[in-house]
């Protein structure tokens, strides 16, 4: 990037709305880039997304093609990560499985924080009996262990990947609601909210235009940090046979398949395990970096 453009972006006196927006983004990017581990996390995730998008072209074989003659082969030149108990190529299954992982992560990340943000900010902003009712509902959800509740949901709705995602999303929102409510309580009495009230701003406008933008950043950070847990929960459901159904190459289900052979043929369970580990870690690192950028408390000084 040339110096003129850099100065234009970092200007303290932007001349247009566009320059101000781009400048703010660029500042954030510089902060994020300074965190090496977060950059590593971001790169891993970009690779994951690329892998999911290009799965059919990247994977050496079909993820479903069985070859019983070559079952449980150790990693070799023909099968880089070995084969499973039906002789399917584990690498190909991992590559295709990344799509499922992304689908789960993406959907949960879209649903849960939105529900949480809505319930939390409304409760915190309205106060009184609205707050009481919404927070007691949140408490009820929080009282159950997340995975158990998800299990119950899936059991009631039927085992499938969509229902697993739905169950995860429905059990993941309460912490976000709590977080959003706590933030709202501190923002609610700020002078700038009082000032907006004096302009005649109604509650809906205060909520959407003034409170949400401030809650969203900490929620994004929290979501990125929680993603690892969601991936693990999804894998857990898959492992228990309540998520993706065979022969879908879901990573948790793949571990489940490999557990019978874990002592003699370690790679069958270990390879998807390593994949889950790397992606979870990448999300955690990314969340750390996002916190530097978005969390005003941490980003000071």
């Amino acid at each position: 990037m040339n110096a003129a453009r850099r100065n234009w972006l970092l200007s303290d006196a932007p001349q247009t709305r566009r320059q101000a927006r781009l400048g703010a983004l660029y500042q954030g990017w510089l902060t994020f880039r300074a965190n090496k581990l977060a950059m590593f996390g971001l790169i891993v995730l970009i690779v994951l997304i690329a892998m999911a998008a290009l799965a059919p072209w990247l994977s050496p074989q079909s993820p479903f093609a069985q070859d019983l003659a070559n079952r449980l082969q150790p990693p070799s030149a023909a099968h880089w990560l070995g084969t499973d108990h039906l002789g399917r190529d584990i690498l190909s299954r991992l590559i295709h499985g990344s799509r499922i992982t992304l689908f789960i992560v993406g959907t949960v990340a879209l649903i849960a924080p939105v529900i949480g943000l809505f319930i939390g900010t409304v409760a915190g902003f309205a106060g009184g009996w609205v707050d009481q009712v919404l927070m007691r509902i949140t408490d009820i959800f929080l009282a159950f262990p997340k995975l158990i509740l998800a299990l119950a949901f899936v059991a009631a709705l039927g085992a499938s990947i969509t229902n697993a995602v739905l169950a995860l999303a429905l059990t993941a929102w309460p912490p976000y609601a709590r977080l959003a409510r706590a933030e709202t309580l501190t923002i609610r009495n700020a002078d700038y909210i009082a000032a907006a009230r004096l302009q005649g701003a109604g509650p809906l406008r205060l909520l959407v235009r003034h409170i949400w933008p401030l809650c969203v950043s900490s929620l994004i950070v929290r979501v990125a940090l929680d993603m690892a847990g969601i991936i693990l929960s999804a894998a857990g459901l898959g492992f228990l046979g309540l998520g993706a159904q065979p022969p879908m190459p879901e990573w948790g289900a793949m571990i489940s398949d490999g557990r019978t052979y874990i002592l003699d043929f370690w790679w069958v369970a270990a390879m998807p395990g390593i994949a889950i580990f790397i992606v979870s870690m990448a999300f955690n690192l990314l969340g750390d970096g996002l916190r530097d950028v978005l969390d005003p408390k941490g980003a000071k000084s």
């Binding site: 709305r17 002078d191 005649g200 401030l214 005003p296």
Partner: peptide, 22 residues
């Protein structure tokens, strides 16, 4: 509100941190 307006004590707390002057 068209008749009465207020200016607050702390200019660091009375402007929304994510809103530009515009």
């Amino acid at each position: 509100y068209k008749t009465v307006q207020m200016v607050f004590q702390d200019p660091y707390a009375s402007l929304h941190p994510r809103h530009s002057v515009d």
